[in-house]
Computed example of a mutant assay.
Amino acid sequence: MQLDWIQWPAFASSLAAAYLVGSNVRTRRNKGFWIFLLSNILWVAWAIPSRAWALIALQVCLAVLNIRGLLKTEP
């Protein structure tokens, strides 16, 4: 499949975001939520041609939670 490579940046960005969201520093947490949103987009881009509907649903739900996290970390 042409988009198989997308899963690796999605994987890496998910790990980086999880690391940053666990920070005690507000700006790092904020960056983590933005990176999580990027990973949500990447996972959906990979999942659509793969017809991974549960993964798409999961990423949409996680994106909503990431937006909530962003709103809570904004000054």
Rank of each mutant, 00 (worst) to 15 (best):
Q2V: 10
V21D: 07
L58C: 09
A54L: 13
L62T: 07
A18W: 04
I67C: 10
L3N: 07
L70K: 09
L37N: 08
R26G: 01
K31D: 06
A16P: 01
L55V: 10
E74Y: 15
A45E: 02
S39I: 05
I67G: 06
W5N: 03
F11S: 02
N24I: 07
I56V: 15
A10E: 06
L37M: 14
V64C: 14
A63K: 10
W34E: 00
N40F: 05
F36I: 00
P75F: 11
Q2D: 11
I41G: 12
A16L: 10
G69T: 08
V44Q: 04
L3P: 05
F36N: 01
W8I: 12
L65S: 13
V64N: 10
R26P: 00
T73P: 03
S50V: 02
W8G: 01
W5D: 06
R28F: 04
P9Y: 04
K72Q: 10
A47E: 01
F11T: 01
I6M: 12
A57V: 13
I48L: 15
I41D: 01
I67F: 15
S13C: 11
L20Q: 05
R51N: 06
T27A: 07
W8Y: 12
S13W: 00
N66D: 14
K31T: 11
L3K: 02
W34S: 02
V60L: 15
C61P: 05
K72F: 13
N24E: 03
L15W: 13
A17H: 00
G69E: 08
N24T: 13
A17K: 03
